[in-house]
């Protein structure tokens, strides 16, 4: 259940920024979650509500932007979308894929008042 740690990290990151901006209320948080980031979105939403209580992020809407993952074959160089780390190259059929995107987990923006 590492989503609670993730949710707390989000709230911390947001609170720091809110403080810097001299504001008190956050109405929404835009979060980029890669398909391979290891985060369960529904679980994260649930944890976020609890983690944000009594902070500047309380009640903020979590806008999740899901990113697909992509990989490149280290043998033949082909680039293609992947759904997991267990990925087969559609071009040469080998399992020697380097992940090129989809591991992101970042706060993209916040809307403050």
């Amino acid at each position: 259940m590492h989503e609670m740690s993730i949710a707390i990290s989000i709230v911390d990151a947001v609170a720091d920024r809110v403080c810097q901006e001299g504001c008190t209320t956050v109405s929404s948080i835009e979060l980029v979650v890669g398909r391979l980031s290891g985060v369960e979105v529904e679980s994260l939403r649930f944890c976020f509500a609890a983690a944000a209580a009594d902070t500047s992020a309380a009640g903020a809407e979590l806008l999740i932007v899901e990113r697909e993952a992509a990989g490149a074959c280290e043998d033949c160089g082909a680039e293609f979308p992947i759904a997991s780390y267990h990925a087969c190259c559609p071009s040469c059929g080998r399992f020697r894929v380097r992940v090129t995107s989809g591991e992101e987990l970042a706060v993209k923006s916040i809307t403050i008042e």
Binding site: I10, D12, A13, V14, R17, C23, L31, A106, V107, S109
Partner: peptide, 24 residues
């Protein structure tokens, strides 16, 4: 604690672009 007395009524979007696990 910071005593912010500013009046910020209008919503504005702030780009953060920060890895969630940055601190760790």
């Amino acid at each position: 604690s910071h005593g912010h007395e500013h009046e910020h009524r209008e919503a504005r979007k702030v780009e953060v672009e920060q890895d969630v696990l940055l601190k760790n």
